[in-house]
Design a protein around this nucleic acid. Sequence first.
DNA 1: CAACTATATCACTATATAGTTATATTAGCA
DNA 2: TGCTAATATAACTATATAGTGATATAGTTG
Lengths: 109, 109
Amino acid sequence: MAPKPLSAHQLQVIADRFRALGEPTRLHILNALCGGEQNVTELIEITGFGQANLSKHLQLLLRLGFVERRKEGVSTYYRLADADVLRLCEIMCGRLEKEAARQRKLFTR
Amino acid sequence: MAPKPLSAHQLQVIADRFRALGEPTRLHILNALCGGEQNVTELIEITGFGQANLSKHLQLLLRLGFVERRKEGVSTYYRLADADVLRLCEIMCGRLEKEAARQRKLFTR
DNA sequence: CAACTATATCACTATATAGTTATATTAGCA
DNA sequence: TGCTAATATAACTATATAGTGATATAGTTG
């Protein structure tokens, strides 16, 4: 299970993916897509972000494979590409719970 | 399994964790710690990073709970806090493999 | 084709942070 | 106590990027 040392390029590629999830705005978008596909106008309404900003983040998430899209007329519907984002967020949230539990112990003991 | 909408603060806290993994330098450090605990001097040799830079990254990883440390005399030994980093990287690497397979298909078909 | 709508892109500014050099702190030792 | 070594922190510079307003592009409708 112990991974081999990774090349500089491999580390960069992996880091790029993590960094894509390292922005609250993009997590907000992904969270909104958990309820099912949405077009950009709907995402603007749901999240309250500016159109240009939202579009830019969507292009990034698309390029890195976190979302996919489907064009219907003049609209573009985005959706989560797979369940990986959910799995990743679950692990992170699990960490936060453990962290919180540790904090509680420090005060109640 | 569909997660609830998250608050701005929750999104920020989760994003902070992902962003910590979104830097090749920090992934390099974590990768070096996969082989077991190392002190800072050893990490400098293994990774080739500057001492101050390495120390700063280690403080960040420590604060966010990705590594733990143990002081022995004048040295400080760092180690992975748990296996979450490995699990997270496995998911990301799995994504990259799927991505590569998709690329191959585009050319061979 | 002209007007309209949805989305993407461009150009710009402001902010965050990676890396570096210098300095501070702490432990072990003569 | 003074000296050396290991690590942490401070101050600074350079770079990357989030957000924004303006514009471009493409589908839709009259």
